[in-house]
Amino acid sequence: MNPNVRIRELQRDKCNFVLSGVNLGFANSFRRTMMADIPTVAIDMVVFEVNTTVLPDEFIAHRLGMIPLISTNCDEGMRYTRDCDCELGCPLCMVVLTLHVRCDMPGTTMNITSDHLQIQSGGDAWGGEELTKRGEDFGLPVSKSRGFNGHPILIASLRKGQELKIRCEAKKGIAKDHAKWSPCTALGFEYDPYNKLRHTTYWFETDKQAEWPLSANAEEEEPPREDAPFDYNAEPNKFYFNVETDGSLTAKEVILKSLSNMQSRTATLVYNIKHQSRPDAMDTTDAPAFPPAGQRTSGQDQSYTNASGWGASPNTSGANMGWASPNATAQGGWSL
């Protein structure tokens, strides 16, 4: 494949590009990776000290989870809680945000927004390698970042005397766990605007042409001739993407991180195939008397009875020609 790309529009939170020279499976995997496999930070646990607002705790907690937090270089700058050595969360795997607002103005209501969230500092003392890789304002709500020109996100409204005091723990995650961790708000994906490949069938009332206006991407391609025969061998090779993010990551970062994610995912598979026949730590301690189904070879009995020691009883076959050698059978079979 000889991939090519042309960016039609680039903004901090938006990138519109045309990808060509790749197959449909690759383009779709790229789309799926951008949507669901790029880690960001999001509020995951909220401790309520005071909540006298009209909204119940879980309602507010849910709203807080959705607030985009700046996650620049999150994949390197932060650990997953499951991978961290700490017991209850530490600055390497957690960002703590606090909020304490009380309304004392009579006769009017007050809005609590994402701008009221304060980051609790004090992580520098830990000095982990991860901390140095984080971008500026890491973990801060996007609405408080430099250059932001939108509105902050409304969390709740307070009447006089009402108060909200909370402590939020933001953690690293991906969108397969919860959609709040997705850096993308929308991801447009289109190919074949004229439906030359007939991958879809248009439903219509009376007139197909009138009821299905062409997409803007149709300008990029030659319209098909009326009498053109159907080319059943044609493959899609031009894909129109429109990536929009919630501001936690820039569109550029989402794209580049996705590509390296796809690369490492594929490389891991190659590595696993290469090493799958070797017993790992688990297999040596609890080796099966027969090779597991995945390594059993067909019609090649010599695999089991050859010099590598697959005797009738594994226990008598000698220490060094061990029974803990499923890889020996693999060599006897087809090469792995």
Partner: peptide
Amino acid sequence: TDVVNTACASIIATVSQLEKRFEEQFRDK
């Protein structure tokens, strides 16, 4: 196994080419 390895190698090559194209385009933009 060989063909799967080849396919993976080809995907990895495609991704790194694409990465270069994107970086060029980002620089231009």
